[in-house]
Amino acid sequence: MNVHATAASAITSHPRPLAGRTAVVTGSTSGIGLGIAKALAGAGANLVINGFGDPRSIEQTRLSLEAAGDVTVRFDGSNLAEPAGVATLIEGAVAAFGQVDILVNNAGIQHVAPVEAFPVELWDAIIALNLSAAFHATRAVFAGMKERSFGRIVNVASAHGLVGSPFKSAYVAAKHGIVGFTKAVALEGAEYGVTVNAICPGYVWTPLVEKQIEEQAKAHGIARDRVVKEILLAAQPNKRFATVEEIGALAVFLASEAGASMTGTAIPVDGAWTAH
Rank of each mutant, 00 (worst) to 15 (best):
S261H: 12
S158F: 00
P17D: 07
I153S: 00
L187H: 08
A8E: 15
G27I: 02
S64N: 08
E82L: 01
T22Q: 11
A67F: 04
A41E: 06
S64V: 07
V25A: 04
T61N: 07
V179N: 00
R139E: 05
P17G: 10
D54I: 08
P207E: 14
P201T: 15
A133G: 09
A255C: 11
T263M: 00
V156E: 03
G108W: 01
L47N: 13
K175Y: 00
I199M: 11
A251Q: 05
S28Q: 08
T182K: 01
H136K: 01
A23N: 12
L254V: 08
L187S: 10
Y192D: 15
G259P: 06
F75T: 08
V25R: 08
A117E: 11
S169R: 09
I109A: 02
V227Q: 03
F241V: 04
L80D: 01
G271W: 03
S149D: 04
L131N: 03
A68G: 15
L40R: 08
Y203C: 05
I222K: 10
H14Y: 13
L187F: 14
S30Y: 03
V48N: 01
L131H: 00
N197Y: 08
V94K: 14
I32S: 07
S30I: 07
R148I: 02
I222L: 14
K239M: 12
